[in-house]
Amino acid sequence: MTKGHRRTTYKTTGFVLRFIDYGESDRIVTFYTNDYGKVKGIAKGARRSKKRFANAIELFSCSTIIFSKKPRQELVLIENCDVINHYPDIRTDLEKTLTASYLIELIDQFTVEGKRNLQLFRLLKDFLELINNSDYSEEIIRFFEIRLLKHTGYEPVLERCIVCNMPIDRTENPFFNPKNGGIQCVKCRHNDFSFIPVSIGTVKMLLMGKEIEIDRIHRLILSKKSLKESREILGSFIRHTLGKELKSLQVLNQIKRMTVQS
């Protein structure tokens, strides 16, 4: 065997972002790892082997992963997974499961394979623990979104008008422009009515939620109006950035409709 074809083994920690069954008993799994970013690999016999993959290939569970790969090979070979945390309180709560599904879909959509981003790994870990250990609140989703955008380089400009640089404090009736990715003051709006009106209070809360330490984040409580505004501006910006609506959001809306009717 030539040197170029040698298989190297790696050990890391990662979250399961998605998996699909493949063949008779295999699974193709996408992990988000702390050392190698997004990693996609094949877990041979994953649906049969109770020893090598015992319950580790479950959505958003965190595991120690051993995988091997050859140079320039896209799909790695997952050799062993050992669960560190399977977040039992998320799994036994429908709203928490739906929220966690949305977070992992966001991570999956905003990342490419093989690019390490430790901040993003910590963000996912912190927020899954937050959801697991506390009561569900919509604020968690919004603060995750704004932090994700920051760590992936898509941070919207909220501190000032993106056209005239007027600080948000001195802006009257600011608007959010998803196409330009930031706030525009009423003067710079130029009668474009596609912008989303947003209050200064909402913007300030999002700016705080972006920076505050994770153990103090539950102190930030958004009013109903601020929740609605932040859902609209971040939702429209994410939709514009990705060019599509996330599937987990569509399912979330279906479930909301169904549970309201019943």
Binding site: L17, R18, L59, L98, S101, Y102, I104, E105, D108, K247, S248, Q250, V251, L252, Q254, I255, M258, S262
Partner: peptide, 19 residues
Amino acid sequence: LLSPIDGIGPESLRLQELL
């Protein structure tokens, strides 16, 4: 089964028929 990340929601299942 429900799978939000794959876009499989309650409307894709025979759930209304059960109700």
